[in-house]
Design a binder for these strands. Structure first.
Length: 484
RNA sequence: GGGGUUGUGGUCUAGUUUGGAAUGAUACCAGCCUCGGGCGCUGGUGACCGCCGGUUCAAAUCCGGCCAGCCCCA
């Protein structure tokens, strides 16, 4: 038995969370490592999950008149440095192209860490009048930010897949609405498809996107108590339109600087998906995002081979026609037991074990991945509905389970020493009050390792009116946590 | 940024202390067997021992540099 264990995940999630995570991402067949530090290869199964995320979000964006386009990956240094704060925020992690073949380039080219500067230099040419607005573009691409130390697949890589949206508006109000609309899209994707609860709110000045007026964010809590930023949506105000001269002629024949937003979500979401739902056997995928929702494993002795395979094919067709993503595992080189384990590591939400016994009894044996529960349903005209109900149930109970953990992990704290103690013990989200001064934020960071992850939307004033650190009058309810 | 640790067929691994023909399992291939939780039997294929250099008659093993993975701390 000890030999067998090496095939699957060998570390318990509770015992060594980091090691467990790296085993799951590789053993579930999501990624492989590249020869270059910090870069990973997304294998077909991992890419399918990304494609599903992409499809869901893409549909939402198109429904509100966002269009997809593509931008080149190289940005001249002069452009990148046009907005100063923005440039200084990114420059430590920019990769540079300095040569073409044997020739040294006259101007160094940055490999995009994000595309604001390039996009906006072009937008300024496209936008002349209020009739050109709003401009709402989205780019599915990758961004590169050099991660010298500590990389983790999906969570922190030197290159990551994402989408970056960039919009230009006539008014402040329009930009503000856009920021919140996009945040709402993200939240819907994350909660209703990925089954991960989030906290919605603002970033502090220190943590906001460099160059933005303000940043809104969705933060989730991982099983080890650390926070993971799931997606962000920024109001750029006129901070970029001024240096990039994005101006339009209004109805009143006067020149105005435009109001802008940018927003992004990356394959980090896949990392969160793994961490939040996985167990000691491997991945567990919510049905709404799973590339395969149901896997059929046929079980037969040689003499029954054709009967069972025929029936499996028929079942696959029926489920497929019913709108479900289904896979028939008819590989002959593996035994059924081997396949059970294989699909469990990969996290398929529902499995059907189909043998002669079930065919004769007109029954289906179903096994839930999340609860490992085994159940039988009758293979009558209602079986498709029964299966859909079960999948729905899996989706809901996964969100419920994650929500219970989420709620448990938020602790209200009013005393600084208590906060330090809590953060030392087991991390988690510390909900407390803050005066709004960056000094207090930095002190807490230095002393505890935690920073302000999110200032939740809601009443601005805290129910206690003094800052956790300096005891002066407080402005905000905030959540402190250690972060990925 | 600081520290620790690891690198040997596709995968996991013995061997490294004390230099002298690279161990085993699994996977893979061929044949047989057949499946209700990682089947079994027989035979076979597969190794730049992470990379570069040094010491030596001789290096997986000793020395130096580099690359990559993982972990902990900031």
């Amino acid at each position: 038995m000890s030999d067998l264990k090496e095939i699957g995940v060998t570390i318990s999630k509770d015992k060594d969370f980091s090691e467990w995570y790296t085993q799951v991402v590789t053993k579930a067949g999501l990624i492989d490592y590249s020869p270059v530090k910090g870069f990973i290869i997304l294998k077909p199964y991992g890419y399918k999950i990304w494609e599903n995320i992409k499809e869901i979000l893409d549909k939402k964006l198109k429904s509100s008149d966002h269009e997809n386009a593509f931008l080149p990956i190289l940005i001249p240094e002069s452009l990148l440095s046009r907005e100063k704060a923005h440039f200084s925020g990114f420059t430590p992690e920019v990769f540079w192209v300095t040569r073409a073949g044997d020739n040294k380039l006259a101007d160094n080219l940055a490999v995009r860490p994000t595309s604001e500067t390039l996009a906006y230099s072009i937008f300024s040419k496209w936008i002349m009048s209020y009739r050109d607005l709003p401009l709402k573009l989205n780019f599915w691409n990758s961004a590169l930010r050099a991660e010298i130390k500590s990389t983790k697949p999906f969570i922190r890589n030197s290159e990551f897949l994402w989408q970056e949206g960039h919009t230009v508006h006539e008014t402040d109000k329009e930009a503000e609405d856009e920021v919140l609309l996009i945040l709402q899209y993200y939240q819907d994707l994350i909660e209703n498809y990925l089954a991960i609860p989030t906290i919605k709110g603002f970033k502090s000045e220190k943590e906001k996107f460099v160059g933005a007026l303000y940043t809104t964010t969705l933060e989730s809590i991982m099983p080890d108590g650390k926070a993971l930023q799931m997606a962000t949506s920024h109001n750029l105000g006129q901070n970029f339109s001024k240096p990039f001269e994005i101006r339009f002629l209004g109805k009143d024949s006067k020149q105005y600087f435009a109001w802008q937003t940018s927003w992004g979500a990356s394959w980090r979401l896949i990392g969160a998906l793994i961490m939040v739902h996985g167990d000691d056997k491997g991945l567990i995928l919510p049905p709404n995002i799973a590339p395969i929702q149901i896997v059929i494993v046929p079980i037969f002795k040689n003499k029954d081979r054709n009967i069972v395979l025929d029936e499996s094919q028929r079942l696959k067709r029926e489920l497929g026609v019913g709108g479900l993503r289904v896979h028939l595992d008819d590989r002959e080189e593996y035994t059924s037991g081997w396949k059970f384990n294989d699909w469990e590591v990969k996290g398929i939400p529902l499995r059907i074990n189909l043998g002669l016994r079930d065919i004769n009894e007109k029954k289906l044996e179903l096994v839930r991945r999340d609860t490992k529960e085994k159940m039988f349903i009758n293979k009558n005209q209602n079986f498709l509905e029964s299966i859909k109900t079960i999948l729905n149930d899996i989706q809901n109970s996964m969100l419920e389970k994650a929500s219970r953990f989420h709620d448990r992990s938020i602790i209200r704290v009013y005393d600084y020493e208590e906060m330090r103690r809590k953060l030392k013990e087991n991390s988690g989200f510390i909900l407390t009050s803050w005066c709004g001064n960056i000094e207090c934020e930095l002190d807490v960071k230095n002393q505890t390792g935690a920073d302000i992850r999110v200032i939740p939307f809601g009443p601005e004033r805290s129910e206690r009116d003094y800052c956790i650190k300096c005891k002066k009058s407080s402005k905000y309810n905030v959540i402190f946590a250690k972060a990925y």
